[in-house]
Design a binder for these strands. Structure first.
Lengths: 227, 227
DNA sequence: GTACTCCTCGATACACTGTATCGCAGTAGC
DNA sequence: GCTACTGCGATACAGTGTATCGAGGAGTAC
């Protein structure tokens, strides 16, 4: 192509300054607004006015970015309180609240080992709170609380999303799932489920979480006292 | 285009017989062999010798297919035992073992409300086992056990995968993560973590799971006895 | 001041995804 | 024998993560 018709190279704007932190923050914002599946490298790059491939200077893989996002949320979890029970409770509640602020967190939590600095700091706080307990029991105790929190958060967020997905009011939900459940119950195969759904008081999510956590901590308390 | 150069329509082979069940079984096989991300509608259709769009007669959406896969796994979970504690334990262990057979199950569990017939049956068994317990406590108890199982399974599978990903032997893992952790510990910011990692007996996954579940069931036992 | 080298950027490309559209072939009804 | 319908699947679309590679800017050696 002749020089005359060859376009000049666009004189680049000063390349936008970038950093791992900025990338992660942008990704978190995107995920907060529109969910995890709205997070793509192209969209992040777009939001930063940058070519998509530029990001690969800062991360090797999208999974790595997700790990960084998870660790960023862990940074929001600040333990508090005195004594192992208070600290563990505060960490659990703070984790749950972080998941409320970042629902996508529920999609990732527990899905990969968390070795980022903030996750380690969280773990450190938990283990430190268990100082004095038999060293061989500390690990499984922390693992159990983690497991409970992971599962409870996922359950809760999943339910919340399902409710929200059925339009903003509850009517749509009852119209689609109600009849299905009624039909299922009508088969007579789920009598216990039926009575519980019909007769039991429906606790809200806060109470359910706290009650379950209380059970677990009670059991742990008894276990480490006996050990 | 002239007739002469227009190819005859391939005389179709008798369309392969299809069913939701067959589709789900195929998807499960694919996921068992190569993980969830190897499951695509095109691959399923390919394995069934069928056009991809054909599947949409049986499912509306890929998410629906995932729900069906999850429910198929729930069908493998058969409760056993007498008394609430035995039944809940057996359901928990069976769920964990199902996740060992289908690692991708860990990626989906807890991610969406489970309303499939097999999941309901599992729930029914749990609630039936809690017959006699105060009806208002039954639900949170079941939710707590579910939460624990979900989280424990995810944690365990995540760890197992991470170990396996570092080559088949442990050397590679120690070479990459070892130094990182050593460096982290060297900062002195994680003393409790460090002592636990260094001094504590390392329980295997079976024991960890059982111990945590035991704590939770102990707490529940105390709670429903007191209530 | 000039030539050369390196590094960094991003355009392009590739293989793949879930799914909307739509024309066509086979079947059923008359 | 014709017509209406149904269900199949080829094609298309917009999007994904990431490999490749040419070109330009920055830095260094003389």
């Amino acid at each position: 192509m002749l020089v005359w018709e060859r376009p000049e190279p666009a004189n680049r704007p000063a390349p936008a300054p970038l950093s791992r932190d900025l990338i992660v923050r942008t990704a978190v914002e995107l995920a907060d607004e529109a969910g995890l599946e709205a997070v793509s490298l192209r969209k992040i790059a777009g939001a930063l006015d940058v070519g998509p491939m530029r990001l690969y200077g800062y991360i090797d893989t999208k999974d790595e970015l997700l790990d960084l996002m998870v660790d960023a949320v862990h940074a929001e979890i600040r333990p508090a309180g005195d004594g192992w029970r208070e600290v563990l409770t505060s960490v659990a509640e703070a984790t749950r609240q972080a998941a409320h602020r970042h629902e996508w967190f529920a999609d990732l939590i527990g899905g990969r080992p968390q070795l980022g600095p903030n996750a380690l700091a969280r773990g450190e706080a938990v283990l430190a709170a268990l100082d004095g307990v038999d060293v061989d029991v500390v690990m499984p105790v922390a693992a159990a609380v983690d497991a409970y929190v992971i599962g409870a958060v996922r359950r809760e967020i999943a339910e919340r999303r399902a409710e929200r997905a059925s339009g903003l009011d509850q009517r749509q939900w009852q119209r689609t799932h109600g009849p299905y459940l009624v039909r299922m119950f009508a088969t007579g195969r789920f009598p216990a489920l039926e009575t519980v759904v019909r007769d039991a008081a429906h606790l809200d999510a806060d109470e359910t979480f706290r009650l379950g956590l209380g059970f677990l901590l009670d059991g742990i308390g008894a276990g480490i006292a006996a050990g």
